[in-house]
């Protein structure tokens, strides 16, 4: 057998091993109840509840922003983001959070917003037209 083949085989075995390890990092979405049960850092996706309070008062604490999220199971929970309120947060619909339960609240360290920003103006436009 050629050395190159040996190297290739070692690489393949290594690759399978590492990919197997890497796959452990792949996360699945959790619900709030699972987050409570596990107490670990999880990813939660849900809908922003626009009717409920979104609190950000930088004069008190520039790293505290809270809002309410409804997860896939329909459970509502107060979410605390330890950071500034993102620009145009109100326009978001789907929110993906990384964080964990702390007391009653879900404390998020990362947040990804899905906002229909691309078509936002068009919606406005349609509203103007219909109104």
């Amino acid at each position: 057998m050629k050395k190159i083949h040996i190297v290739a085989i070692i690489m393949i075995i290594l690759a399978i091993g590492v990919l197997f390890m890497a796959s452990n990092d792949i996360a699945t979405y959790s619900s709030f109840s699972e987050a409570v049960a596990s107490g670990k850092k999880v990813k939660v996706a849900g809908q922003l509840i626009k009717e409920k309070e979104m609190y950000y008062n930088p004069e008190k604490d520039p790293n505290y922003f809270s809002f309410y999220l409804r997860d896939v199971e329909g459970l509502e929970k107060k979410v605390v983001l330890l950071g500034a309120k993102p620009q145009d947060f109100e326009l978001s619909e789907q929110v993906v959070l990384t964080g964990k339960i702390n007391g009653e609240d879900f404390v998020a360290s990362e947040m990804l917003l899905k906002c229909p920003s691309k078509y936002k103006d068009e919606e406005e436009f349609l509203m103007i037209q219909e109104g």
Partner: peptide, 12 residues
Amino acid sequence: LGLTSPLEPITH
């Protein structure tokens, strides 16, 4: 499947 990217993508 409901899979999603790692919790700490950069670390990963």
